[in-house]
Simulated assay, not measured.
Amino acid sequence: MPSTNYPVTKTVNANASNANRKKFHLSELEKMRKGGFWLRKWRLVDVVNLCWITGIHVLAAFAPFVFDWGAVMVALGLGLFTGVGMSLSYHRLLTHRSFKIAKGLEYFFAYCGVLAGQKDPISWVSTHKSHHKYADTERDPHSPAEGFWFSHLGWFCYNDYIVAKCGEYSNVPELKAQWFYMFLHETYFWHPTALGGLLYFYGGFPYLVWGLGVRATFVCHITFVIRSAGHIWGERPWNTPDTSTNNWWTGTFALGDGWHNNHHAFPNSARHGLEWWQLDLTWELIKLLQLTGLATDVKLPSEAEKRRMVLLGSAQTNKTI
């Protein structure tokens, strides 16, 4: 597949004021919104992302016709590894620094995330940091205010729009300074493609369908739905300044990441399922790593932070009334 260096957004003069920078970005965003999603200039990275999403769905459609127990077991195993790569590595470790692990183990989990097919660590972490910083505002990279479809999937194939909203990876200098993450950023699409080739070489078309198509389609959608449904439907035990919600089904299938209101209330917490009945498999793995000495500096919300969050929520409710 072709190299996909991400495009550099337009910049203003280095001596321009912050006001001019803000005005520039807002004007660019307005132009992009008026231009719509489909009738616009398509960058190579967006075309490849769209082809990837389309391709895994087409492969998944063949699943009933090439059922194979070996292929299903491979899909389940890869689904677990890549799901952990997204939840434990991309999300809780690289974005929120909820705990620390040795660099070699960090790189291993990050590579599992790469094989999920949801962009490289630099791109994903930068977008998610912006989501927390600008949640539910016009600069949120995948705000539900722009519609369910866009918050679920459209943003994934519109790199220029995300860059215009949030900047081009300026919020992840710690990742850009590491050769491993820069290597993944420059070569990202080759890795899930190579995995597809290995699956086909090992087990033929059924293994490609189940190990790549079905597995990647499920992992992508269960992650994407947190961005869309996770800001529309569900419970809000914490009165956060955004629309994040808890959903038991995304909490279960997204390995704990679906307890999204909990997460927005305490973004640096390594544990998202804060109640005993809120299943959080990623947290169970982090606990295991902690017990074996492989994970340190594990962050959890204190009782004082929980009380403060409740008090802030009560103050916001009273103010609204």
Rank of each mutant, 00 (worst) to 15 (best):
T4W: 01
T11V: 12
T11Q: 14
V12H: 04
N15T: 14
A19E: 15
K22E: 15
K23Q: 15
M32N: 05
M32K: 02
L39F: 14
L39Y: 13
R40I: 06
V48H: 03
W52T: 08
T54E: 06
V58S: 06
V66T: 08
F67V: 13
D68R: 09
G70T: 07
G70Y: 04
V74C: 04
M86E: 08
S87I: 08
L93Q: 06
L94A: 05
H96Q: 08
R97W: 09
Y107L: 15
Y111A: 11
C112K: 00
Q118I: 05
S123V: 08
S126H: 06
T127W: 05
H128Q: 11
K129C: 12
S130Y: 10
H131R: 00
H132Q: 10
A135T: 15
D136F: 10
E138T: 11
P144K: 01
F148G: 04
F150T: 01
W155M: 02
Y158A: 13
V163K: 08
A164L: 12
A164W: 13
A164Y: 14
A164R: 10
E168K: 15
P173G: 02
E174W: 11
L175V: 09
Q178H: 13
W190F: 11
H191F: 12
G197V: 09
L198S: 00
Y202I: 14
Y202T: 15
G203H: 06
L208P: 00
V209C: 07
G213R: 00
G213H: 02
A216P: 01
H221G: 08
I222D: 06
A229C: 04
H231K: 05
T243F: 06
S244T: 05
N247K: 03
T252G: 02
F253Y: 06
G258A: 05
H263R: 07
H263Q: 09
F266N: 01
S269P: 01
R271Y: 09
W276L: 10
W277R: 11
D280Y: 04
I286K: 06
K287H: 03
L288T: 13
L291D: 12
L294R: 14
A295S: 03
D297E: 11
D297I: 02
P301N: 01
M309A: 14
V310L: 13
G313A: 03
Q316Y: 09
N318M: 14
K319N: 11
T320N: 08
T320I: 12
